[in-house]
Design a protein around this nucleic acid. Structure first.
Length: 282
DNA sequence: CGGCTGTTTCCTGATT
DNA sequence: TAATCAGGAAACAGCC
């Protein structure tokens, strides 16, 4: 018996509150829905994993979560975080959104007109524009009541766009998008290898966690293993993630040709079945 | 509901 | 000694 524990293995720890992969799109649930007096600085606690991201060991190199910075000072990464939050919280249909249009800094985002939002995200753009303007004008008290806010957005947008409701808001969680234009930089890269790839391709988010050893060959090195695990854990809303466990998942990719073995510690290589990492094929 | 996929968790043992 | 690697085994979540 290799693994040793057999079917009778019991959980050595209390049952986890939410197993990995059980990530829900609903941010305003459970006790997190209402943080008393959630002021701007407190808000990250109310967001899934926000606090852990803020405390990411990469420290100074990494910016804090988007909620702790005024929109005009957002980095591209903050913009993505905000976009992801909006998709999650307001159940926006990611299929409407051309994510490449939002590959901009906060300053650029703030200078975008409503028309440009609509161009970038259709009817969802109306919502996003409204949300952004509210954050800019009201600061983060805007989020103090998620349900109210949602209703407000709905009202506001449907005033100008009567059928926005059915065509943009989804009734259940967002699905992974299949539009090729943004598949690589997907906000919801649900697979670990895609998450790793996107991190390698996004210097803004990478914070020196991963680096290329040989860009052409697809060889990369995990520089900050613990930070990588934390980030992945945050993505999966699992604060018990460790590099040990993450690397086990990476090793499974050897079987499927997503990754190839490299005989050096913390070094991996994209395999023939991984796509989207090559410079000339982006 | 069952099967499948992609992890997550845990483990033993080896290597750096 | 600690971190990491290598995989087996089983549990689990989400999807079809």
């Amino acid at each position: 018996m290799e693994g040793g524990q057999g079917p009778s293995r019991t959980h050595p720890h209390p049952p986890p509150p939410a197993r990995a992969g059980a990530a829900s799109n609903s941010w305003a649930r459970d006790e997190d829905a209402d943080v008393p007096g959630a002021a701007f600085g407190d808000l990250p606690r109310a967001l899934p994993g926000a606090s852990s991201l803020t405390s990411l060991s990469s420290g100074a190199a990494c910016d804090s979560y988007w909620t702790s910075v005024h929109p005009e000072y957002w980095t591209k990464r903050h913009v993505w975080e905000w976009l992801q939050f909006c998709c999650d919280q307001y159940k926006l249909d990611t299929n409407c959104i051309s994510f490449c249009h939002f590959n901009v800094s906060g300053l650029q985002l703030c200078s975008m007109t409503q028309e440009e939002f609509v161009e970038a995200a259709g009817l969802c753009g109306e919502y996003l524009y409204f949300i952004l303007q509210n954050i800019r004008s009201q600061g983060y008290s805007f989020f103090s009541d998620a349900e109210e806010t949602k209703a407000g957005i709905k009202d506001s947008v449907t005033h100008s766009v009567p059928d926005a409701d059915s065509s943009c808001l989804k009734t259940s969680g967002i699905k992974s998008q299949d539009c090729p234009s943004h598949s690589r930089t997907s906000l919801q890269s649900s697979h670990l290898w895609e998450f790793v790839r996107d991190l390698l391709l996004s210097p803004e988010e990478n914070c020196g966690i991963l680096e290329w050893e040989d860009r052409e060959q697809g060889i990369f090195r995990v520089v900050k293993s613990e930070a990588l695990a934390k980030m992945w854990g945050q993505r999966k809303k699992n604060d018990r993630m460790t590099y040990e466990k993450l690397s086990r998942a990476l090793r499974y990719y050897y079987k499927t040709g997503i990754l190839e073995r490299v005989d050096r510690r913390l070094v991996y290589k994209f395999g023939k079945n991984a796509h989207g990492w090559q410079e000339d094929k982006l």
